[in-house]
């Protein structure tokens, strides 16, 4: 049983991978030695599908957007947009056409990806195994991890995107010299402290994307892991699963909100000229 449980959990936490080898395109275990040149196709698939769900829904509303009496979908979309807009306006006081849509994309996309946590842990893998079975693949070789934010690649992609924007706007607003000055003359404003300051500030700067990515990943990975553990305890899992899923009513939007909010904060810090 213990070995079964162990392999069950491991199976659920393994990404479907794709890589190109000498013999052509290979999948999963065959990619064990491919190193960096591997794609987690389940993460890519789900994140892009969810991203398209977000964009196409919002785009359809945007196309039909009326200033008159809005429909129900438009109301819902406008609530989210208004919420993001007020969050941005409260924190960021400069003028930037990118930050609000960026925040909206991050919030809704991360929310949708986190929401995949609510899908019963065996549902999507079982369907995938059935489909794989009809295509003649051993069900044990079919891996699928349906919550993209439990993949470090996903969270780091988001946080690095934000990080690049922070660097870009820091240099754009303050100039390269100004950016360097910020890195070397804080927190101790004396030339003798320049190396110390530089080390401190660099750590601060780098800690931001790292913490951003790891916070989201950690919360969702842990949540998913507990869901999988709950799924191994038999019939009693039903009430426990319900409790844990209800708890995620809090975790899932909160993590999406935190990611969005910190993005806004970091970018507004990048816009501040000292």
């Amino acid at each position: 049983m213990a070995a079964d449980t162990g392999s069950y959990i491991k199976h659920h936490l393994t990404n479907a991978q794709m890589c190109s080898t000498d013999t052509g395109i290979a999948f999963n275990e065959a990619c064990a030695n491919a190193g960096f040149m591997t794609l987690n196709i389940d993460t890519l698939l789900w994140s892009i599908v969810l991203g398209l769900v977000f964009l196409l829904t919002f785009r359809s509303v945007a196309k039909k957007a009326t200033t008159g009496v809005p429909g129900k979908l438009q109301c819902a979309v406008e609530m989210i947009v208004g919420f993001v807009d007020s969050s941005v306006k409260e924190t960021f006081h400069g003028k930037n056409k990118l930050i609000a849509p960026l925040s909206l994309t991050i919030f809704v996309w991360v929310l949708l990806m986190n929401a995949m946590d609510w899908v019963p842990v065996d549902l999507i893998p079982t369907i995938a195994q059935l489909i794989g079975g009809t295509m003649g693949v051993d069900p044990h070789d079919v891996y699928i991890k349906s919550v993209p934010t439990t993949d470090l690649n996903m969270t780091f992609a988001l946080s690095l995107g934000v990080f690049f924007l922070v660097i870009f706007y820091s240099i754009k607003i303050k100039g390269f010299g100004g950016f360097m000055k910020e890195l070397t003359f804080q927190p101790f404003n004396h030339w003798a402290f320049v190396p110390v300051n530089f080390i401190l500030e660099t750590v601060t700067l780098l800690a931001r994307p790292l913490s951003l990515a790891l916070r989201l990943f950690g919360n969702l990975y842990a949540g998913e892991l507990i869901f999988i553990l709950i799924a191994t305890i038999g019939l009693f899992q039903l009430p426990v699963h319900f409790l844990w899923a209800a708890f995620h009513l809090l975790v899932i939007p909160l993590q999406a909100f935190i990611f969005m909010m910190l993005t806004i904060v970091y970018l507004s810090l990048a816009h501040e000229d000292h």
Binding site: N40, S47, L102, M154, F156, L158
Partner: peptide
């Protein structure tokens, strides 16, 4: 961390640009 990171980064940029 593997090539997925790059793929997601591209997807992220495209989504943000589309949204904007």
């Amino acid at each position: 961390v593997n090539l997925t990171l790059v793929g997601e980064l591209i997807a992220f940029v495209v989504f943000v640009l589309f949204c904007m």
